[in-house]
Design a protein around this nucleic acid. Structure first.
Ligand SMILES: [Mn+2]
Ligand SMILES: [Mn+2]
Ligand SMILES: [Mn+2]
Ligand SMILES: [Mn+2]
Lengths: 221, 221
DNA sequence: ATATAAATTTAGATATGGCTAAATAAATAT
DNA sequence: ATATTTATTTAGCCATATCTAAATTTATAT
């Protein structure tokens, strides 16, 4: 069992997330952008992660996460999302306030702590942003979901997650009344700029840009 | 508002605790023992804490915590003890399992987190080891308490805290059935070695060494 | 095919926090 | 009063994690 520092865990998580977005060889620059550090720092870290065999690294050609690496990444993600649930469900945090704190809490090293927290929360399956919580073995129950902007005219569905978890985006959703669980229907798609008119809960309509819609994930129904 | 690193917070807490034990000028070696680091590392850290004005430091003559330093130390202690309560009350940790995890959790930086945690726990006044939890202003409600070995023959009282919070000591107390809240009475004091015979909850008697008794704090009644 | 641009890595610096060994100051004993 | 012991500090080293600037490799355009 290798040990990872908090910084290593953060980088590994970034590599995992970027890998999930389809990319085969995750690039130094992509990681640098994700981590808000300089490419030079990334190169250094990749060497370390490679030595610990949680990533496959070929200089100049990007990295791929290993099976072993995935396990570690998924445990950190599990902790992150369980803590987010705790903050929202038990401490009445808003969903736009949890990310940064969870970013710290996810590094607390205590197997019993996370097991008990999971129990205490009633084994939640999704975090406040609709993202699935891996189980203790790293298994993830993925729901089929697609960006709202990819729905066709008159398609209906339910908001199940957000892609962007930034406070700015989440507060915007709060303001316009979009939330996880909301039933939606596409009333109009503007050809010119891809913006949409959406019916929410059969009650009110909502106009949103394509950019906003692309960050709202729906289960088509 | 200065910022302290986790390491600085740990050292400052150590200085605070040693100061509370009466000592005027806390020595480098005492801190070194408390922190389980080498005296050379302590000297280095004292310079840093002194620059941040949370301690008064005169080389070779030991340190004293400043008023400003006390405030910071008490906030870390507050967080430590609140997390301990959380672990025991909500996550069913045993009182001998919480210290190390709280040692990490106490460094999470989020004012709202600790305020909400306090609320969630119902504003507890004492931690699982009977130690008082400072309020948000750093005020501590101290209970009068003295080591059990200082009680006289036939004196009675109630266990209100433990001095040593090590797992070994706490598990020993569990084993013999001593706990916080227990009513006790001194049935015998052995002159030879200072060991005691104690009546617990008017039910069973208990023999303990002077060393053990010195780490049990009672409210005399 | 070569020149240029972009991406990436390396080199060298800084900051934190730890260590050992050597130097120095203070305390103690003769 | 001086020598010895103990406590403390300083110097120099290592590891982690970041940075900037320079070097190098790969990709792109002409
Ligand atoms: Mn993190
Ligand atoms: Mn989330
Ligand atoms: Mn700590
Ligand atoms: Mn405690």
């Amino acid at each position: 069992m290798i040990k990872l520092t908090s910084a290593e865990e953060n980088y590994l998580k970034a590599v995992y997330h970027l890998s999930e977005e389809g990319k085969k060889n995750v690039s130094t620059n992509d990681i640098s952008a994700e981590m808000k550090t300089k490419p030079a720092s990334v190169s250094d870290m990749l060497r370390k992660l490679s030595e610990k065999q949680v990533i496959d690294y070929r200089k100049y050609y990007g990295v791929n996460i290993t099976e072993e690496g995935k396990k570690y990444a998924l445990q950190v993600i599990r902790k992150h999302r369980l803590w987010e649930v705790f903050l929202v469900e038990k401490l009445r945090f808003a969903w736009d306030e949890v990310h940064e704190v969870a970013e710290e809490l996810e590094h607390i090293k205590s197997p019993i702590l996370i097991q008990r927290l999971d129990e205490f929360l009633g084994h939640p399956k999704f975090d406040p942003h609709g993202d699935p919580i891996p189980d203790e073995f790293g298994d993830v129950k993925a729901r089929p979901r697609l960006p709202l902007n990819e729905l066709e005219l008159n398609d209906g569905g339910q908001i199940v997650a957000v892609k962007d978890s930034s406070a700015a985006f989440l507060r915007y959703l709060d303001k316009v009344g979009a939330y996880i669980g909301a039933r939606i229907k596409v009333l109009d798609k503007v050809e010119f700029d891809g913006s949409l008119e959406i019916l929410v809960d059969n009650k009110k309509t909502l106009f949103m840009s394509k950019d906003v819609a692309a960050n709202i994930l729906v289960l088509q129904q």
